[in-house]
Amino acid sequence: MIEVESLSKRFGAIQAVREVAFTARDGEITGLLGPNGAGKSSTLRMVYGVLAPDAGRVRIDGMEVHGETAAARARIGVLPHATGLYGNLTARENVAYYGALHGLPAARVRARTETLARTLEFQDVLDRRTKGFSQGQRIKVALARALVHDPQNLVLDEPTNGLDVMAVRTLRELLRALRAEGRCILFSSHVMQEVAALCDRVVIIGAGRVLAAGTPEAVRAERGAANLEEAFLDVLQAGGRDGGTSVGEE
């Protein structure tokens, strides 16, 4: 479970994140939805601990990210916006590197890598250097890397960027499977359909603020919109007008 409490972050003159609060629960997929530059990435970066918030806090399974950093971080898998791999290492070595950095025994890393390669369907390129990989293959390896330590929580920043239809489908199935295992999944996107198709809960962010949150159905009904997309646009326009309202998380 990821609990975010009134998180704020300023970069110079820009207030990137203002008192953002939400909870991503175990066994649910939570979507952070918002236009480009809304503060999604900054929020996620504070969640996985590479940015320190100016105010507010983040707890992973009850552990403070900024403080008990190592313990909290060991419980998250992260797929950042930039999913660079090491081109001169094979897919297997890329995954194994992270396994070793998590302090896992080599045998366990080996077994885990095989499993993930099977689930994510990249066994065929497992022992090839990642230099020439397609974007889809890269994301799969990066995802395996993020999951190598079998984390309870998974944070993904725009994971479907640059993926083809088949790869998106594989990713969705994987996320659903992880949800079925009772894990907590938090991902960001600016693509409406993706969120609508996948999420149990959405958090709509605009200009660094939470503008609406709840189940997709609740957000739609709240706005009296025909579908989630209209509700999303309505929320953003309202947010631009009055500085944002927050629909409570029931």
């Binding site: 996985y48 992260v78 950042p80 916006h81 930039a82 660079g84 791999l85 992270y98 950095l101």
Partner: peptide, 17 residues
Amino acid sequence: GERERGSLEALLALPVP
């Protein structure tokens, strides 16, 4: 190079000092 390749952020998110 690690930053340019885009592999830095995931590395920094690990529970490694």
